[in-house]
Design a protein around this nucleic acid. Structure first.
Lengths: 221, 221
DNA sequence: TTCTTTTAGCGCAGAAGCGCGGTAAAGGAG
DNA sequence: CTCCTTTACCGCGCTTCTGCGCTAAAAGAA
């Protein structure tokens, strides 16, 4: 990296900062899975509801800006943001030339401690039915679709479940994500080989006790 | 949009441009498919080879910046850029704080007219074996992977082939993209229902004449 | 002309996947 | 204590998919 004492100059003697640059924001769809399906955290601001977001600070990585905005606006910690898409339509932000890099994070419902009163967990359908700021409905749609894709053929890739769990519990989470009932046998056959059986059984429940599973050690493939 | 005469001010009275902003570049993997497989356009600059790219101009859409850079650097016209990923690692560009939005475009080999002497079509493996500027090897890997995904279960989604074509020709293109032989019968069964038979046959070739196909009218689903 | 070579296209048997129903195993109701 | 309800889990037939090999059809060689 060029030291600050010798800034870069192009062939016309100008530094990069002599050219027009956009403001860059990050906006994040914080998803969780409730009994009723996918839900998303919305922040109630002056106008329409919005996703938590912030402007990128100097020399900050996008993922760090996402984590900072979640910490400040929703008291959420320790996540792995996934980049979705850059929204760049000229005029999308009335304040000026702003690019927004959309992200997705997924949090277990029990880990969501919204200490900020105007941040609320909103079911997906309800969130999309409301008027939302900027392109935030499109971001939510992409985030939900990417979550559904991830859950299509891998057991709980976002580690939403507390261990150990039964196959039925796993299926209920997958059905909440998919927003549809899943065929029981096909689900079992696809998932069981990718789990690690603990050898223990549930007790105190109605019906035949179920076997308990954990995620396999390293990559759950 | 707020008129220019009344620029936006935040609660501390500052405009967006009073805060530090990154330079935003676009870098594009221009892919084509040759007999030998996927190939990518590399620009030979002073140092390592690089992908064609440019800085985003004021209020310009990312896709427009991609098209402008390809027109200027490689004489390529009329494409649909697809956004891949934003590269944001601090220090990735020695000239300063630069975000790069990686894109992919796909061009039929016969449409590539590189009027610029230092832009060259390079086979994928060769390109990845060379030292490349910035994160350009990662961009090429992502671009090739997305192309392979697209060709996995849809006939020639990038319309690389001249019509009409035979199933064998289609399979050869798909094998070049996949970098592997594909099973003949499974390929036929997957693709034929998604094509429109012209009713015509090849002639002047050795062996039994093949039926000729075109893409279906609207979406090739 | 006749045989050989090349490639398209189809029939068929084996494999794999799917869902239905049956059985086992526990708690709760009466 | 007995029966009923609930849920787990497995066997079995059915459908779908896969790949092999056969046949057809045309060009080129002899």
């Amino acid at each position: 990296m060029t030291p600050a004492s010798e800034p870069y100059r192009d062939s016309s003697g100008r530094a990069l900062t002599d050219y027009p640059r956009p403001s860059v924001a990050v906006d994040t769809a914080v998803l969780t899975v409730t009994e009723g399906g996918i839900a998303v955290v919305l922040v109630e601001s002056e106008g329409d509801a919005a996703l938590p977001g912030t402007f990128l600070h100097e020399s900050e990585a996008l993922a760090d800006a996402v984590l900072r905005s979640l910490r400040e606006k929703a008291g959420i910690e320790g996540l792995a943001p996934r980049q979705l898409h850059v929204f760049d339509r000229p005029g999308r932000d009335s304040r000026g030339w702003v690019l927004s890099v959309a992200h997705r994070v997924v949090v277990p419902e029990r880990m969501l401690r919204l200490d900020d009163a105007h941040a609320r967990v909103t079911p997906l359908a309800e969130a999309l039915a409301r008027p939302l700021a900027y392109d935030h409905d499109e971001i939510i749609r992409r985030a939900a679709e990417s979550l559904r894709t991830d859950y299509r053929d891998s057991p709980d890739p976002e580690r939403l479940m507390a261990e150990p769990f039964t196959l039925r519990e796993l299926q209920q989470v997958h059905e909440a994500v998919a927003g549809a009932r899943l065929p029981r046998d096909a689900f079992r056959r696809a998932m069981e080989p990718r789990l690690r059986a603990t050898g223990e059984l549930t007790s105190g429940t109605r019906g035949k006790p179920a076997r308990l599973f954990r995620m396999p050690k390293a990559s759950q493939r």
